[in-house]
Structure formats: C-alpha cells, structure tokens
Design a binder for these strands. Structure first.
Lengths: 259, 259
DNA sequence: TATGTACGGT
DNA sequence: ACCGTACATA
C-alpha cells in the first residue's frame, strides 16, 4: 500500500496546474523511492517528467510498485478542495481502484477526504538519456516567464541563441519583431537574480512559444529555472523542487530553425 | 532620422492605454519640436490630441518631419514588454518601414528590442482653433474619474452646468437620477485637491458618459484635469504632462441637451 | 477551455 | 506602484 503525507498540499496543486494543459491522463508511478510521473503531450512534441522523492514526504510508505492512472482534470478538481495550508496524505491499496486524498488543516480541526477513480493507462515509458548539454542557463523563473509572455505577443516561435556572454531570445511576427538579450551576470546581493551560463559550445535553436509559456506555469514552484540546450536535441526546462525533487519539461526544437 | 529617449517608458504606455479605446491606428508626427498625435475616434465624436515635446526626451533628435503610422494594438503589445522602470528609446529612419523600440533595464543587464511595422494612414489633420472657453474647471483627475464612473451607473449622458460658484454634474436614468456638485475651493494644505473655476459666462452642456469615462483612463498621467467648456462647442479635457507636454480630448456636446 | 482585459487590494 | 484575482470573450 501507499501512504504519503505532504506538508504542503500546495506543492502538488501547483505541479498539477503546471502540467494539466499538456497532459489529460497519466500514471503516477509510486515505489519506495517516491512518486514519479512521465507523460508526453497529445501532439508528442513535449514531455513532462516529475519526480517527488520519498524525502519530500513524511512519512512515506510504499511497499510495492503501484501505477496510479489519474485523470488530471479530476485531480485538479479535488486539489481545489484543499485550503492553502492544508496537509495532504495520498493513500492507495496495492491493486487500487481509487486513490484517496486526505486534507487536514494545520490545526487539525478540519479533515476532508476524497477518492478519485483510477484508470488504466497505457504506459509509453521513455528512457530519457542523461544528456550532456552544450549549454545550460540558470535564471530567475519569473524572468523566463516574462520573456516567453512578451515574445508570444509577436510570434509563435522563439529562437534561443546562447554564447558564453549571454543568451538572446528573439522572434519575428506579423506586427514586427522583438528580442530580449540577457547577459550572464552575478549579483552578490541577490543570488536569485543571477543569470549564469555554463557553455561548452554555442547553440542556436528554435522553439514553440506556446509550449514554453505553458511550461512557465510552473514558475511558482521555484524562483529559478534551468534551460539546457544542445543543437538538434530537445530543450530541457527544469524547476527544482524541495528534497531533490524536480519538475522537468522537454521540448523538441522546431526544424528549419533560423527562418 | 528620429532618436528619442524617454526615461519613463511608462509615460508612453499610459498615454497609449488611454487612447487605444478610441483610436485603432494613427500617425505619430515627429519633428524637431517633439512627437505629436491627433486622431478622431471611429464615430467622429471625439478627438484626441497628444503632444510630447522634445524636452520630455533626453536626448531628442529628429532631423526631418516623419509620420509614423502605427497600429495602437500592436504598440500596446510591444509596450507591455517593457518592465516598469525601463528606459525607452524610439528610433526610426527618415523614410521608415518600421519603428524601433529599445527597452533598457536601469541596471543595463537586460536589453529588449522590438520593431513594429508601420502603415500608411490618411491624415485628416484638423486645425483645432485656440478657443477662448466660457468656463474652465481644474480639479483632481481622480475625482473627475470617480464622478463619471458613478454617473455611468445611472445613465449614458451627463449634464455639466458650471457657474462661478461651482460645477454640477447630473444625470437621469431608468433607476433614478444623480448629481454631484463641486464648489470652487482652495485647499492651502493640498493644492492637488483644489477645484478652481475660471468663468466668463455660465454654461450648461450634455455629454456622453461613455466617452468621458474613456478619457478618464488618462487619470494616471496627471493628478489634475482641466475641463474647458463653451456652449455649443466641444468640451476639452486636458491632462498636463511633464515638460509642457499634454494629452487632450475633445468631445462634441449632445444636441438636444437638458433632456 | 484558454486568453486577454479590468478592477480592487496590498 | 505592483500583483493577483475576477470577469468577459473567443
């Protein structure tokens, strides 16, 4: 059986809000190391991979591998029933029909409980190779969100060009063109505002802004985001979560880039 | 060529936000004295006239007269890409296809650049006579905004009656009627709250509240607004901007007033 | 359902 | 002045 207690119901809420636009139904794969999720979006252009390690829960118990096939719209509806500081406990049997969610108020004066029916989902489990990327950029997640939002006003695609000195996001559209250039810099006072670039080789790739701005709905999960790029390889957009957990998005580049 | 640097990108943002409900496309007429704009709304009831004098920019350079025909929705999209304290530089060639907007962060660690395609706009340039008005009222812009918003809940039209002693805004509607009367008064402590009236002859005119409340979107540009009226002549609503610049709205009175 | 705009609160 | 929420629209 599974029993996993999460002090911040909000964490799961934000994760699900961040991916519900990309994925309708998916398996939450539970085992003794934690709860993992991996799913491609409908058009098979993007992939979401989440890992909530057992350390993120207290306590965490999972005797066997269990795949919980959940409709994310249903899960969203139930998670909306949690209040802001509620503590969430996920429970399931070993061969479950339902997953059980219990919300406790911090003061334990209120307890809500929901069951969501499970579904069988064909797992198309992709091994994601542990790529060495040519460039990785770590920057404020709010800034990345702002850039994708701004450029989306002009175009559907953005070109990301990265050199040792900086990164340039640019696009062309019907009403005109735009670009935002960030220089790699370190701010001693406020590390959260740093833009740091780790690069072995310059890269230039083009991506769908619609997807990127969908990924950015995860900005509330972490003040920082890491973009990892190599030419002709999917972009990795990663939000670090507490206890070495993470939410990662992969997005295939647009071919015929630089048009 | 034109090159005009505005410390407060926000100023242009607010101006454009204030008029975008009235005008879709219009020319920004640039010459060595500054940047001017004049446009009628679609139904030819209202007229907007803006003047940003060269002194409002630093530096300002404009060698020749250039008319920049801009779609205000596009301009709004691009201006939304400015962050709050960004410095804006407008650039254009002498016979331009595009206008170039550059946003610099105060710390210069971010530079965004946008091009907006220009359009040819038939200029219906009205000479606006420099009328001597029978009455002019200067009052807090927030107060005028509040009055138009309140009365709009009751009616589509407002009657403005002004005497030496005060000004009365009144309306009748289906659910009832309402009026707000302001007495001319001087507040030594807080000049911004003064209501001052300069009158040679009493006036009584009726105007569309919809338009007035649209004009009031400019309230953020100035704490004060000046209303100038003469019988049977368009109302002038004026917001003073820094460096002797201004944003003015003209609105024809409703005929058959006092109904 | 998602996006863009408007408003009110902090 | 900024952010977040709420409403309305597409």
């Amino acid at each position: 059986m599974l029993e996993a207690r999460l002090e911040q119901a909000n964490l799961l809420k934000k994760v699900v809000d961040s991916i519900t636009n990309l994925v309708q139904d998916c398996n939450f794969d539970c085992n003794d190391s934690g709860i993992a999720l991996q799913a491609m979006d409908n058009s098979h252009v993007a992939l979401v991979a989440m890992m909530l390690r057992s350390d993120a829960f207290s306590p965490f118990r999972c005797d066997r591998n269990i795949a919980l096939g959940i409709n994310l719209t249903s899960l969203t509806k139930v998670l909306r029933c949690a209040q802001n500081e509620d503590i969430l406990t996920l429970k399931a049997e070993d061969a479950p029909d339902v997953v059980n969610l219990v919300f406790e108020s911090a003061e334990s004066d209120r307890l809500s409980e929901y069951d969501i029916k499970l579904m069988d989902i064909d797992q198309e489990h992709l091994g994601i190779p542990d790529t060495e990327y040519a460039a990785s950029i770590t920057m404020p997640s709010a800034e990345f969100q702002r850039i994708t939002r701004d450029l989306l006003a002009l175009s559907e695609s953005v070109s990301i060009e990265c050199t040792k000195e900086g990164v340039k996001f640019s696009c062309q559209g019907d009403i005109g063109s735009g670009s935002v250039t960030l220089r790699s810099h370190t701010n001693v006072d406020n590390e959260d505002r740093n833009v740091s670039i780790d690069l072995s080789e310059p890269v230039s790739l083009m991506f769908s802004l619609k997807y990127l701005s969908n990924f950015c709905k995860a900005s509330g999960l972490s003040s920082r985001v890491k973009l990892s790029l190599s030419n002709e390889v999917p972009l990795l957009v990663e939000y670090a979560l507490p206890s070495n957990s993470f939410l990662r998005f992969y997005l295939a580049p647009k071919i015929g880039d630089e048009d």
